[in-house]
Design a protein around this nucleic acid. Structure first.
Lengths: 362, 362
DNA sequence: GAGATCCGTCGAAGCGCTTCAACGATCCTC
DNA sequence: GAGGATCGTTGAAGCGCTTCGACGGATCTC
C-alpha cells in the first residue's frame, strides 16, 4: 500500500503539504499542487480510510438502517437505498448498510465506534424503538418516515395527507360521488407506520369537503383477498365508481377482477393508485397515480443529514446541529445557521393516466 | 468518547490487557477479564473503528456492490442484500453499500483505501467490467452470478442449468409434449447476464431427453407484451400445454390472460415459474415453481468471502486465498488449506403447487 | 524602508488501537 | 531445588493520517 509519506517523498514535499493538497484546507501553490497530484496518480495512492477516520474523527460514512421485514414496498425501499448510496457517493461519502436485525443496539454501536458520522433511518414507526437512542446519541440523524413525536428530529417523507386529499379531489373533480379505498393490509395499520393513517386522513378531508361517500377497507395483496374485498364493497355500495388503492400488490388483482366482472376502466370505474410510477405504468391500464418519490426521499435524506454533519462540525462539537435542552424544547428557533431540525414533507404529484375518467351517468 | 485507555485505568490494568480481553488473542485470567468487562460495561465503551482498522489493517467491513439498474429482480436483490447484511453482522462484520453508479473505479477505491477487507459483487455479467480490477486488486472477493471466465474467482449462484432441466422434466413427467418458454426481456439476453442462457440450456437438455417440442419467446413484463407473446405462441403451436416462465413480471399478466381466454390452470395448461417463493404464492393460482434462493445466496457469499479473508490472513499476506501466477493457471490445486477458488452452484428445488397438472387428453 | 501582513510550506504531536518483545511469577520435571 | 516451560501481564512502538503552531520570504502600508 502506498502511503502519504511515500507520495510526499516522491513529490519532494512534506507529508502535511500532501495532506493539504488533498483536503484543500490550506492554500497550496499551483506548482506544488500539480507536482503532488502527479505523484498521487503515478503511485496510485489512496488515502487509508482508517487512518483518516482516526486522525480527523470523521469517517465520511453514513449509516443507513433498513427495515428488517422485506414484506412490503420492496421496490420503494430499494430505490430509496440506491438513491441514498448514489447521492452519498456524489458527495464523497460511503454508506453502511444496517438491517433492523440488530435492533436499536445498532444505533449505539455505530455511534459509539465512530463507524459512521450520521444515520438515516428508514421505515420509521410511530413509536420507534430506535428513537430514544437517536436522541441519546445526539448524532446527526434523519428519518425517512414520520414518528408520532418529531421533537428534535429531522424527517423526510411524502406528504401522505396531501396525497390522500389529492386522490379524493381528483375523483370528485371527475364527478364521482361514491368512492372506496382499498387500503393496506391490516398489519400495516396495526404496526402504526403512520403513513396509511395519514393518507386516510387526507382522503377523509377531501371526501368531506366535496361531499363524497367513502368506504375504507384494508386488504391483503393476494388475489383472493382483493376479490373478497371488492365483492364486499360492491355489495355494500353498489354505486361505487371510484377507487383509491394504496396497496401496490392489490393493483394487479384489482384490475384483473374488474375486467372479469365486466366493469371497464375508466368507463365504469376509475382507479387512482398511490405507488411508484414504474408500477403505475406496467399494468394493462396505465394508472392515474400519485408517485412515491423514493429517489427524492433518499436524496433529500442525504442532503439533510450532511448539512447537519457540517453544521455540527462548524459548531465545533459533536451533536445534532441544534442544542438539546433536556426535553424542554424552549426556543427551538432557527438556532445556529445551518441545518435546523425540521420535518420535510414532499408535495405529492398526481399524474393522470388512463385509469380515471368522468363518472358514468347514474 | 470513552477510550481503551480509560477502560484500562478504570479496571486498574494496562491498555494492552484490555485489548487482549477484547480480542481473545492471549490468555487472560478470568479474574482480570471479569474486571475489564465490567469496566467496559460501566463506562459504555465501544472500540473506535478507525483506530482499530489502522492498527490492525483490518476494517471488518465487507463491500457489497449492487447493480445500478433497478429495473429487474428487485425483490431478489433486496433479499440478497439483506441476507448479506444480516449474515455479516452475525459474524461481527459490517457491510458497505456500493452501487454500480461509480463503476469499476469503486473496486479500486475501496480496496485502495482499506475501507473494506473484501467484496461481494452482485449481478455479475458474463463479461464484467469489474473483473479485471478484482483480479488486479487481489483481495478476497465473491461474485453472485457467473461470468464467462471463472478462473481464479469464487462464485455463488443458483444452478440455472439444472433449474431449466428440472422445469422441463416436471412438465414432461406430467405428460406434456409441447411446451413454451416465456423468457426474459430481450435486453436481458443482450446484456449477457448468463443466467437466462443457462436456464435455456437446461430446458433444451430436458426437452431433448424427453422428446418434447419447445418454443422460446423473450418477453417484456408488460401486459401488452405478454398478450402479444402468448397470442403468437398459440398461433404457432396450438397444442402447447405447458409453460415455463422466467420473467417474474410476466406471471401476473400471463395468468390473467389465460383466465380471460378460458384456458384453465392447471386443467388446460400448466405453468411452472422460476421465481422467489413469495412471488409464487401471491397469485390467484399458487404456482409450481423453482425458488430463487436469494437468502441462501447472500449467506453463502458472506461465508465464502470471510473464509477467504481468514485464509489470506493466516497465509500472512493480503491476497485472494490462492496464488495468482500471471495468468498461467497452472497447478490450481487445493492450494493452502482454507478457501480455494471455487464455483458454488446451489441445487434448484422445485415445489409443486397448484399451477401444474397432468396434460389434458389430446 | 521598517514594521505589519499574508502566503506557502514544514515539523511534530497526536488520534485510539494492536501487537511484539520482555518480564516476573508460577508451575513442572528430574 | 535448580533449570526450563508456561502463564498473565505490561510498556512501547508504531499504523497513516490530520492539524496546529511556526517560520522564512514576499507583499503591503504609511
Amino acid at each position: 500500500m502506498v502511503t502519504l509519506a511515500e507520495v510526499a517523498r516522491h513529490a519532494g514535499v512534506s507529508a502535511s503539504t500532501v495532506s493539504y493538497v488533498l483536503s484543500g484546507k490550506r492554500t497550496i501553490s499551483k506548482q506544488t499542487r500539480d507536482r503532488v497530484e502527479r505523484s498521487i496518480r503515478e503511485l496510485g495512492y489512496h488515502p487509508n480510510a482508517g487512518a483518516r477516520a482516526l486522525a480527523s474523527s470523521r469517517s465520511n460514512i453514513i449509516a443507513l438502517m433498513m427495515p428488517l421485514r422485506t414484506d412490503m414496498y420492496v421496490p420503494v425501499m430499494m430505490e430509496i437505498a440506491i438513491a441514498v448510496a448514489t447521492t452519498a457517493r456524489e458527495r464523497d461519502r460511503d454508506v453502511l448498510l444496517l438491517t433492523g436485525q440488530e435492533g436499536p443496539a445498532a444505533v449505539r454501536r455505530v455511534v459509539g465506534s465512530g463507524l459512521a458520522d450520521a444515520m438515516i433511518l428508514m421505515d420509521v414507526e410511530l413509536q420507534d424503538d430506535r428513537l430514544p437512542l437517536v436522541h441519546e446519541a445526539d448524532r446527526p440523524a434523519v428519518l425517512i418516515g414520520l414518528p408520532a413525536d418529531t421533537t428534535g428530529l429531522t424527517c423526510v417523507d411524502l406528504d401522505f395527507t396531501a396525497t390522500g386529499r389529492l386522490c379524493a379531489e381528483h375523483l370528485a373533480g371527475l364527478g364521482h360521488r361514491e368512492i372506496a379505498v382499498i387500503g393496506e393490509a391490516a398489519g400495516v395499520y396495526e404496526r402504526h407506520t403512520g403513513f396509511a393513517e395519514r393518507t386516510m386522513t387526507g382522503i377523509r378531508e377531501g371526501v368531506r369537503q366535496h361531499g363524497l361517500r367513502m368506504l375504507h377497507r384494508p386488504c391483503e395483496g393476494s388475489y383472493e383477498s382483493v376479490a373478497g374485498t371488492l365483492a364486499r364493497i360492491f355489495d355494500e355500495r353498489p354505486g361505487t365508481t371510484g377507487f383509491v388503492v394504496q396497496n401496490e400488490a392489490a393493483i394487479g388483482p384489482l384490475l384483473s377482477l374488474l375486467r372479469q366482472q365486466g366493469r371497464a376502466v375508466p368507463e365504469d370505474v376509475s382507479v387512482v393508485a398511490v405507488c411508484p410510477d414504474q408500477v403505475a405504468t406496467q399494468h394493462s391500464v396505465a394508472l392515474t397515480s400519485v408517485a412515491i418519490p423514493a429517489e427524492e426521499m433518499g436524496r433529500r435524506a442525504v442532503e439533510l443529514v450532511m448539512a447537519k454533519v457540517d453544521a455540527a462540525e462548524a459548531a465545533g462539537g459533536r451533536g445534532n446541529g441544534s442544542a438539546h435542552g433536556n426535553g424542554n424544547g424552549s426556543a427551538a428557533g432557527p438556532a445556529a445557521a445551518g441545518a435546523p431540525d425540521r420535518v420535510e414533507l414532499l408535495p405529492p404529484q398526481l399524474t393522470v393516466r388512463s385509469s380515471t375518467g368522468p363518472a358514468p351517468r347514474s
